[in-house]
Nucleic acid binder design. Structure first.
Lengths: 153, 153
DNA sequence: GCATAATAGTTACATTTGAAACTAATTCAG
DNA sequence: CTGAATTAGTTTCAAATGTAACTATTATGC
């Protein structure tokens, strides 16, 4: 006889749980910096990438934060208008622009970093150090594997 | 002396990693059922909730899949137009409507469930059974804790 | 060199999404 | 009862997002 079709328990289904968890975490963090600094999630990620790896081109930023070039362009437009990011056209290839945080951008970045790390720390408090290491490693493997599955089709 | 401000390593920052992982997993799964069945992620989640717990009201669905009532209303509008969901107004409270999958809705649901479970299974292949249990438990705890932090403000 | 293709980034348009206002029905306070 | 408040769900309007087309510049094939 045919095997009974297994039930889909949405509440225990990995893609669903990951999605909900990521959403609540991302929104909680956004609540902490949106009020004082008026940044979108994308804008903050661009700043975080520049804060860590500048100078970068817009394409570099997109690769770092896994975001398409239109979204990056729009985030940068807002950030440069506010004077948080400086752009300098590359002399040898005038299509490219080299991006970095301005002094004001660095100041805001420096104030958000401890807020972000503090939130992460509070979140992680529910795990032991051992569990935390384990969770980090498992998410890294799932991430790499999900990418592989995707490429394979 | 003041403690040196710690660097934010975006690539190891939990909220960021969760967000990217959830996104790639959700999109990969959507790729599998969007082509054959032309459903949005929200529509599929509504169907999954009804497939498992019907009959439900629209509010019930929203609570189950953690989605606001406007999004649920729009997803249901599409699903009822396509005849995948049936709605029956509650006799004792005519504001409410009792929702369930139609025969066609159940047929599609029955075809997507194994696809979804199969994807989850392939994804989980990169973890041992032990690691998988561990990951499930850690995400459950993080989820509960993130909710608590959020309420606390 | 010159035409063609490719790349960096922006703009335009159409679709999706979210917040707030709205309709309809029910509950509650007095 | 009657009017105010609450609840279920939809509609409306503005903002965010994605896709495709576009500009400007550089690389490539012949």
């Amino acid at each position: 006889m045919p095997s009974p079709s297994q039930a889909l328990e949405l509440e225990n289904f990995l893609p669903y749980r990951l999605s909900i968890l990521a959403q609540i975490v991302s929104e909680s963090l956004h609540d902490l910096y949106a009020g004082p600094f008026d940044l979108t999630v994308t804008q903050w990620r661009v700043m975080a990438a520049l804060g860590r790896f500048a100078p970068l081109t817009a394409s570099d930023v997109g690769q770092r934060i896994v975001m398409d070039k239109v979204a990056v362009s729009r985030a940068l437009s807002g950030l440069t208008k506010r004077g948080l990011v400086e752009r300098a056209t590359d002399r040898t290839d005038r299509r490219r622009a080299s991006l970095r945080l301005s002094a004001r951008g660095r100041a805001i970045h420096a104030r958000i970093v401890p807020i972000a790390l503090g939130y992460e720390e509070r979140l992680y408090k529910v795990l032991t150090a051992e569990e935390r290491r384990s969770f980090d490693e498992l998410t890294a493997r799932l991430f790499a594997h999900a990418g592989t599955l995707r490429e394979a089709g």
